[in-house]
Write a protein that binds this DNA or RNA. Structure first.
Length: 584
RNA sequence: GGGUACGUAGCUCAGGGGAUAGAGCAACCGCCUUCUAAGCGGUCGGCCGUAGGUUCAAAUCCUACCGUACCCGCCA
């Protein structure tokens, strides 16, 4: 189904050509939804921008465009306003017919992309043996939502968890274990690592204090890379333990991910360096093998290197990232690779992408996108760090959110003298609590820093998940009360007349444009904004219009508005990774 | 020092060339014999960091400055 916006764009484009000739065929008609209902529903601003080129006044251009517009069935007569805006008011009959189409469609009238393209979304990516922190939570929630949107749009999405399961920290951990729990290195299940974070911290302290231990740790890395049996055994043990802890979080959040950690690419690292060497991109600098970059300079204005092999012979994350690009292009056949990581890595990715292009690891045809997000700040506005001591247990955070939601629900049940089963309460609290955390994150523009506040994210008022969930519950309540099967409604005779009905219908019909926007800009907060506004508009409609008590054909028309609203919310929320409740 | 973001209502944030800059929270005032009031309506609240520039049109683009944060060779 073609959206209203696209239909109007096409119509104005055609009118431009009809009025002024083919050379305007590629001119953007500058059609957009209006920001104020008094200017109608949509506006075309192209007349203003063409004034100079056509040597005519904007209003004269607008008049000529309108004279060539063929949109009688869609819009009331377009009006010229202000300096030369063309305002369109969509006819209620046209809104009704589109709404009927949406109602009859499984996908709410949203088309899938053709041809199907393969997209890799690389997100979450916690580090083995470290606490998953709020930054990982952001990557996980945002990455999942982006993956869900792209999946819905019809892309073949591979969700990759590029876990930090390799690197120098393992030398430190294994060396420490060798000292403290030597039996863990050889015996299966000899050690319940339990609190990995404590182990990590102790090892880190040891590492920072003792230069000799540092050497031992570095040797341990080499042994691990060489495949020493006891080292590998311990490494696997650490990974297993971490994996279980991560999985508990993913289960709670309902996140699906394919784990493919850094270690996966180990066999390919040497080849990457050799390839760079073959292409004469490599230079040795202070013992390290580097590719010098264009556009990156250090303090003294000298070009910065991307180090692909350290002076000790070890590879680092840049090498792994290059190998990963290579594998994803050649083996996974990705058309697009999306990296959801914090904004602090922007330089790193820009450098890696530059080298990958230069070395032909990354062909022109494959798009790589770094999707950055801001820092997670505490309520004091300062960065939350894990390494500096205070750890942030994500499991506790999520559990607290659920507990708080449960308390709120129980209070409300008591006030309303309702009784519900334990199962109902548990489920509602779970959905509300987890959704609140996700929504709080997603509803903000991801590029800005995120102020993490228990109070704000657990609050059940305002622009929050519970508000949207409640807006979904309301139409479901209507269908229960009236014994209505929404799927059986006939869309033959939809009549829209009341202000709040028209406003709601117009908003419902913008879903397809919003999803398109999120698909392109990868900004889930746009979808949140849309759903929030939809909830407000539905609540206004619900407040002002009787549904079940209305006379036909209004009754069915309003039931359809309720149904489409509910399905739009359900779909939209699902793209944010948020489930709905039938009652709450 | 260089690079990159950001600076919008008391607070948290949308909007990123188009008309009179929006929302939520907080504060205050109304609305439940009604499909769940986790709702709706209203009031209050702004030199869009500062100064220039580009444009028919700037919160939005450019430049400078001020402020904040992040990144800047062998961690990821």
């Amino acid at each position: 189904m073609k959206s209203l916006l696209l239909t109007l764009q096409a119509a104005v484009s055609e009118a431009l050509v009809a009025a002024f000739g083919d050379e305007l065929a590629d001119t953007d008609p500058l059609v957009a939804a209006t920001n104020n209902p008094k200017f109608g529903d949509y506006q075309a601003n192209v007349a203003l921008s063409l004034s100079k080129k056509l040597k005519m006044s904007p209003r004269a251009i607008a008049e000529k465009i309108i004279a060539h517009l063929q949109i009688d069935s869609i819009s009331e007569t377009p009006q010229i306003a202000g300096p030369g805006f063309i305002n369109f008011t969509i006819k209620p009959s046209y809104l009704a017919s589109l709404l009927g189409e949406v109602q009859q469609s499984d996908r709410l009238g949203i088309e899938q992309v053709e041809p199907i393209k393969k997209v890799i979304v690389d997100f979450s990516s916690p580090n083995i043996a470290k606490e998953m922190h709020v930054g990982h939570l952001r990557s996980t929630i945002i990455g999942d939502s982006i993956a869900r949107v792209l999946e819905f749009c019809g892309y073949d999405v591979l969700r990759l968890n590029h876990v930090g399961d390799w690197g120098t920290q393992f030398g430190m951990l294994i060396a420490y274990l060798r000292e403290v729990y030597p039996e863990a290195l050889t015996t299966a299940d000899a050690l319940d690592i339990g609190d990995l974070v404590t182990l990590y911290k102790k090892a880190k302290v040891r590492f920072d204090e003792d230069a000799e231990f540092q050497d031992t740790a570095r040797n341990e890395v080499v042994k691990l890379q060489e495949g020493a049996t006891d080292s590998r055994h311990t490494w696997k043990l650490l990974c297993e333990q971490s994996r279980r802890e991560f999985q508990a979080i993913y289960d709670l959040l309902d996140i699906e991910l394919t784990e493919r950690g850094e270690s996966f690419y180990n066999p390919f690292l040497e080849n990457i360096v050799r390839e760079l060497d073959k292409q004469e991109l490599l230079e040795k600098d202070a013992g390290a093998k580097c590719v010098f970059l264009e556009g990156f300079t250090n303090k003294d204005g000298e070009p910065l290197p991307l180090i692909v092999q350290k002076s000790d012979g070890g590879f680092n994350y840049a090498t792994t990232d290059l190998a990963a690009i290579n594998y994803r292009v050649k083996e996974d056949h990705a058309n697009k690779i999306i990296y959801v990581t914090d904004a602090g890595q922007a330089n790193h990715f820009a450098a890696v992408f530059q080298v990958a292009k230069k070395a032909n690891i990354l062909p022109e045809s494959v798009k790589v996108v770094h999707v950055p997000f801001g820092l997670v700040l505490g309520e004091d506005g300062k960065r939350i760090k894990t390494r500096s001591g205070e750890t942030f247990k994500l499991k506790d955070l999520l559990d607290d959110a659920v507990k708080q939601a449960r308390k709120d629900l129980e209070n409300r049940l008591e006030e309303e003298k309702r009784t519900e089963t334990e199962e109902f309460i548990q489920n509602a609290a779970q959905v509300v609590g987890i959704s609140a955390v996700k929504y709080a994150d997603l509803s903000q523009n991801r590029t800005s820093d995120y102020k993490f506040s228990y109070d704000k994210m657990l609050s059940l008022k305002g622009n929050t998940a519970p508000y949207l969930l409640y807006a979904y519950v309301r139409p479901q309540g209507v269908s229960r009360k009236g014994n209505i099967d929404y799927s059986q409604l006939s869309s033959e005779n939809i009549v829209l007349a009341e202000e709040s009905e028209l406003t709601l219908a117009k908003h419902l019909l913008q879903l397809t444009d919003v999803i398109k926007e999120v698909e392109q800009d990868l900004l889930p907060n746009r979808l949140c904004q849309y759903l929030f506004e939809l909830s407000q508009k539905f609540n206004q409609f619900y407040d002002r219009c009787d549904i079940l008590k209305a006379e036909e054909p209004q009754r069915t028309s309003r039931l359809i508005l309720s149904d489409v609203t509910a399905r739009t919310l359900k779909l939209g929320l699902s793209l944010l990774g948020i489930p709905v409740l039938e009652r709450m």
